[in-house]
Write a protein that binds this DNA or RNA. Structure first.
Lengths: 242, 242
DNA sequence: CAGTGGTCTAGACCACCCG
DNA sequence: GGGTGGTCTAGACCACTGA
């Protein structure tokens, strides 16, 4: 077996790259099953064990979901289990009912310094800004300001947001074919300004969590930058350290 | 993986349990190499592949560290790479010099309601409380109050803390044979009270991160409860969402 | 060089799901 | 029953480390 790559790359990683490529090209849609390990092994002319190891890694990366006896599926944000992967806020009383996203505003603008740096686009490039409220059991808990590259989110309007009653990422995936793979959050404590205090129904100056998030799609391409202000009177940000 | 009744336990998981047991019994010390896969396979009368899969999982759990060509080692908090596994605070300017732990106080007490619940011990059981400051480049950034079960940390005194210039978990591991496996953090925003404002040199009422952590050792046994107040003027809490 | 972990293969069998 | 993923084995070879 010849590996002409300068740095050694095992076969299963090459297979992983090929599957990733097919995934990115939309060969199989989120929620659908990919071909069986045997079929993929035949397609790439490797043994089932090698395909298996490639899929193992992609399942660990939350790109695929294995279901014994059924098949391997493309991960989807429509899956309710995916919801709390990117939302680490938990009510003090442990109530697990899913939060409700209430869009407040949606307008177009040009990328400023910070947005262009975070999204990896030119300053002045078109962006879309969304303001929305997150309610847990009718109580406003998070106010978000979300910056999206206009090029990717062509048809995103307030109406589209209004007409969607599931998670934002679920909308992005279904409507724009954009799959959020991973994110990075920077968390600070700040005092509520006028706008936040009104939206979250707390006193001005109340300490809030400021959660800045950059979200990446395939190829580590940033496609969302958001800043959320979290009221932590009745909720907390939960983080598991492994 | 699943929390259902284990109707079936694959061989490699049984091997994993056996290795875990040996680890817990101190058969190999942190930082040391465990026997080779071949030796373990012979010892447990299974194939190398099965041992391999067991070790794979334990490496993923950060219990073991594989080093190609050398062997497999017991993970240790003395390893500098382990430091930022439990400390997610990063300076705004990206300076990577490790923080300095400054013990302020260390006294004995009896567990109250909250401490007993968090540590899974009887109310009134002996506990040790440590107050300490974390400095990044001479600047005070975190003030911690740490609750430890007295039974486990017999000889812990202010002197012992003073004489240690590495991380706390490194001390716990070396001195008390206690390995911290995983932790759970609950994060809220709070206003600095008098004590915190003096320790962190910020104005009273400044928003701070309140980070409550419960840390677990083998068998998911809680052995530390701490509450930290983080000043986020020049630092932020970084969280990767995968 | 010998010894370690890392990869790849081929085949057998098991657990699970569904028609 | 047939198809899927999941486990287990045995053997060959590769990449890395250190003496």
């Amino acid at each position: 077996m010849s590996h002409e790559a300068p740095t050694f790359s095992p076969l299963y990683r090459q297979i992983k790259a090929l599957i990733l490529q097919a995934l990115e090209a939309g060969e199989w849609r989120p929620g659908q099953a990919i071909p069986s390990e045997q079929e993929l092994a035949a397609r790439f002319s490797v043994s089932q064990g090698t395909v298996r190891k490639a899929i193992d890694e992609m399942a660990a990366d939350n790109l695929l979901v294995r279901k014994q006896g059924k098949g391997t599926y493309v991960a989807s944000h429509n899956d309710p289990r995916a919801l709390f992967r990117f939302l680490r806020l938990v009510p003090n009383d442990g109530d697990l009912s899913p939060p409700q996203s209430v869009p407040l505003d949606c307008w177009r603008a040009k990328a400023g310094q910070e947005a262009s740096r975070m999204l990896g686009i030119e300053p002045g490039a078109p962006i879309i800004i969304v303001r929305r409220l997150l309610k847990f059991a009718t109580r406003p808990v998070v106010i978000d300001e979300i910056y999206l590259p206009g090029e990717v989110f062509q048809g995103l309007t307030a109406e589209v947001l209004q007409g969607w009653n599931s998670s934002l990422y679920s909308l992005f995936e279904t409507r724009f074919g954009l799959r959020m793979i991973r994110a990075q959050e920077r968390i600070r404590a700040v005092a509520a300004d006028r706008g936040a205090s009104e939206a979250l129904k707390v006193a001005e100056g109340t300490p809030l969590l400021s959660v800045e998030r950059v979200t990446y799609t395939y190829g580590d391409k940033p496609v969302e930058w958001r800043r959320g202000l979290y009221s932590t009177a009745d909720h907390y940000y939960l983080n598991e350290l492994n």
